[in-house]
Design a protein around this nucleic acid. Structure first.
Lengths: 229, 229
DNA sequence: CCAAAAGTGTTATTGATACACCCATGG
DNA sequence: CCATGGGTGTATCAATAACACTTTTGG
């Protein structure tokens, strides 16, 4: 099946939904577009996929350019392909979502963006193109996945308190959780490593610090667990 | 952002993973390719996406051509885009899976196929291109989804017995289930409608027939249930 | 009357939920 | 000594898992 020219009239892009967490709110990294179409509108960062580039490498490239980070949690969300989703031509876009530790990032504007910013999920009302739909879909996926595996840890610093972890889950799920039950459940999984340190400089009883045990994570993943909280 | 010609060098295809069930085994609808590359190899049915066609309409078109069926359960699985996945050029493919009632279908070969056939999942060892990988990924998704919503009903005739339903779940999950616990769980969901009829012409006690209650399905879906079996 | 699958309940165990008080620190 | 968030246990309820025999039909 050799291809004729006719079959190469569609461009394809990737869009990155990059989630972060800052001790209280779930946020997303957005860019303000410099160029038409949708100049000055907030949009998901993205790029066209290069001819000689594996699909998955495109969102990795975007992440690297935007945040300087490698080795980030990255998962495909869905492909969006309505004929008229892009005003300049036929563009099919593959959406990916990432979870990153917000404190590791000093994002610098990409060439085509005026501005890059962390925006609270709750404050995002409309976005360029069909990006709001993509965000909503990614959020549903994040909420489902956070119950199936402990990806939430990707969003936290290397060591964290149980309260931080709980408020992360509360932010992602948009739901209050019971402190004692949350701790019981999390600790019973043996997924946390006690780093034998305590918070410092807080005006209350300092909390124990934990880190995430990646070996135990692999075991649980192989067994197939659920993280229903 | 007007596009230059350079950006239109990749073709887009869809591939359909079409599952069916025949009272004992989970099967997939495959074609035997007539043309190179991979002539005579079994492959997933698929097509290039037309320029003026919404992405989701492409797998619907393939299903219609192949089986004559409209209005089939169809869900996007994932997009596969390694640079060299297709020997004739850069082709990114979006995989979709469907669940159909195997008895409603008399598939007729598409133009580019020698042969179309239902093959037991367990008998599929290798496929053209990266189609085996796509199938494996779709199976994982099916197994996950079958626990989250009762999509299994799509695979059965309009009326069916509880034993048929159970063996469907056993085939999909590749796991034996306890008869009493299965019935208790299914019936407690009130998702089945007693059609007040019985099997006929079987050499044993005839089983009650049920149909699926689509209203109740919508209610459950809205509430968000889990079908953990 | 035999073979084959249909149908049916109870108990034990596990996991989920609800809930309130004392503790350690900094200011 | 006060304000702040950290930390802890028990009792109830709901869901899951394990398990074996009787019933109805066709041949």
């Amino acid at each position: 099946m050799p291809f004729t020219n006719n079959e190469f009239r569609t461009a394809f892009s990737v869009d990155n939904v990059i989630f972060g967490f800052d001790d209280a709110d779930l946020k997303i990294l957005l860019i303000r577009r410099a160029e038409e179409p949708f100049a000055n509108h907030w949009a998901l960062p993205g790029a066209l996929v290069n001819q000689d580039e594996d699909l998955r490498d495109a969102p990795i490239r975007v992440l690297k350019e935007l945040t300087g980070l490698d080795n980030v949690f990255l998962e495909q969300v869905k492909t969006f392909g309505k004929v008229n989703r892009h005003p300049s031509g036929r563009v099919i876009t593959i959406a990916y979502y990432s979870l990153i530790n917000i404190h590791k990032v000093a994002p610098q504007a990409m060439s085509f963006a005026d501005e890059v910013s962390w925006i609270k999920i709750k404050d995002v009302d409309s976005l360029a193109f069909d990006h709001k739909e993509i965000l909503d879909f990614s959020l549903v996926k994040l909420r489902r996945n956070v119950k199936l595996r402990p990806i939430g840890f990707e969003l936290l610093p290397d060591t964290f308190t149980l309260s931080q972890l709980q408020s992360l889950y509360e932010a992602v799920l948009d739901k209050e959780l019971d402190k004692r039950n949350f701790r019981k459940k999390i600790l019973s999984m043996k997924l946390l490593l006690d780093v034998k340190q305590y918070q410092q400089g807080v005006a209350h009883r300092p909390a124990k610090l934990f880190s995430f045990n990646p070996e135990r994570y692999l075991t649980l993943k192989a067994e197939g667990f659920n993280f229903e909280i």
